[in-house]
Every structure is written in structure tokens, then in C-alpha cells.
């Protein structure tokens, strides 16, 4: 289980936003993606997660090694905390003990019979992150995991993350907050912006934008 990205270019809305990205993520490593809003952190994570095709380059990782956590937590507000986490536990085939353990790790056990809709924003986020534990997958792709978490919860999550890395997991994290992970490397995405704005080769804008000079 190793995530290797080579010369990757990703696009959003038909325009290349990042290109030439290469890195390797080995077991026990974490990599924090940095860069201003809109630079393409989410796009990069979604591309690596397999939700959208890369423009060019290669991503080598078994897709069943990856666990993606998006901005949204994917919670059903009508269901209880317990039901939400057990659902993902059975989707990933990890069983109810794993679900209970995940709730315990993120200090949600006391809330387990509450409907997810009644949780505070930070508690919802913790529930969303608990889902990662029940996937049983080694490589976590985290998109702004600490949004709406208070300091204590950030520290709690950093502890969970550290334990995950110790057990041989890995994480790719898009965040602005310092998680206090000394073992985490950083990757500033700013240099990977394309020098010139260009449309995706073979995309609509490319097909018709490039023939501007042609008469007719």
C-alpha cells in the first residue's frame, strides 16, 4: 500500500488547475497539501480518490486502499449516530465492534442514540471522521478535516491520525490548520499552477478555443 502520484495534472470546469504534481506516500507518512483557496486541493483529492479522471499523469494505488472524506460528511440527519456509523461499517464489511470502537475514539459514544441532525457542527464532523476508522483502509484522503472542530477536537483528531500513521497508515490532508503532526510533510501547491491558463486537451474549450484564428 503506497500511494504514488507521478506528473499528475488535474482540471476543474474544463481548465487545468494543477500540473506536474509528483509525490510518494509510504506507510506511516502524512502529507499536508497547502495553498490558497481555489488552488485545486479538493480537485486533486477527488482525482486521486477516483471520482474524476486525471488530465494526465499517473496515480498508482489500489483503489481499495483509499478512503476519501469530503467537505460534506455524508450523514443522514434522520438516523441516529449509531445507525450512521453502522451503515458505513457494513458497507466496508468491518462489523459492529469496529463501529463502536470508532465512536469511542472520537468521543461520540455518549451521543450514539441521538439523531445525527441534532448534533452540533463539530460533532457531525467528528462523526464524519469516525467513518474513516470503519473503512479499514490505510490511505486517508482528507479534505479540510478540521473544519468546525474546536481546539480539543482538533487535538483529538490529531491523536487519531497519529495512531493511524503508527499502525502503518498514511494520510493526504488538505488543511489550513496546523495539526501538530511532526511526522507530516508539507506540499505547497502554488508552484504547480500552470504557467499559462489552458483548457483541458480534448475538452470542449480546447476543441473550439484553439481555432480562434481560423476563418469562418
Amino acid at each position: 500500500m503506497e500511494l504514488r502520484v507521478e506528473n499528475l495534472a488535474v482540471a476543474r470546469g474544463g481548465l487545468v488547475v494543477l500540473e506536474g504534481i509528483s509525490f510518494t506516500l509510504c506507510p506511516g507518512q502524512a502529507l499536508v497539501l497547502r495553498g490558497p483557496n481555489g488552488i485545486g486541493k479538493t480537485t486533486l483529492l477527488r482525482t486521486i480518490a477516483g471520482l474524476q479522471p486525471p488530465v494526465s499523469g499517473a496515480i498508482s494505488a489500489a483503489t481499495d486502499d483509499l478512503a476519501y472524506a469530503s467537505h460534506a460528511d455524508g450523514l443522514k440527519s434522520a438516523l441516529t449516530v449509531d445507525a450512521n456509523i453502522s451503515f458505513w461499517a457494513s458497507v466496508y464489511g468491518s462489523g459492529q465492534t469496529a463501529a463502536a470502537a470508532a465512536l469511542d475514539r472520537l468521543e461520540l459514544t455518549a451521543l450514539r442514540h441521538r439523531a445525527a441532525g441534532q448534533l452540533s457542527a463539530g460533532q457531525k464532523r467528528r462523526l464524519g471522521l469516525a467513518r474513516l476508522l470503519v473503512t479499514g483502509r490505510p490511505v486517508w484522503l482528507l479534505d479540510e478535516p478540521t473544519v468546525s472542530l474546536d481546539q480539543a477536537a482538533v487535538a483529538l483528531f490529531a491523536g487519531v491520525l497519529r495512531a493511524h500513521l503508527k499502525e502503518g497508515g498514511a494520510a493526504l490532508i488538505a488543511t489550513h490548520i496546523d495539526l501538530g503532526l511532526e511526522e507530516a510533510g508539507g506540499l505547497d501547491l502554488t508552484p504547480f499552477r500552470p504557467k499559462h491558463q489552458r483548457a483541458v486537451a480534448g475538452g470542449f474549450d480546447d476543441a473550439f478555443g484553439e481555432i480562434i484564428g481560423a476563418p469562418g
Binding site: G14, L15, Q197, A199, F204, D205, A207, F208, G209, I211, I212, G216
Partner: peptide, 20 residues
């Protein structure tokens, strides 16, 4: 089709203009 191609081209040009 020519009209639609031109419209697409216009959008592409505008996008390019905006992004510099």
C-alpha cells in the same frame, strides 16, 4: 452547429480573458 461552435468559442475566449 456553426452557431453553437461560435458560442462555445466565445465562452472559451471570455474564460481566457477573465483568467488572464
Amino acid at each position: 452547429t456553426r452557431m453553437l461552435i461560435r458560442a462555445r468559442r466565445l465562452i472559451a475566449l471570455e474564460a481566457r480573458e477573465r483568467l488572464g
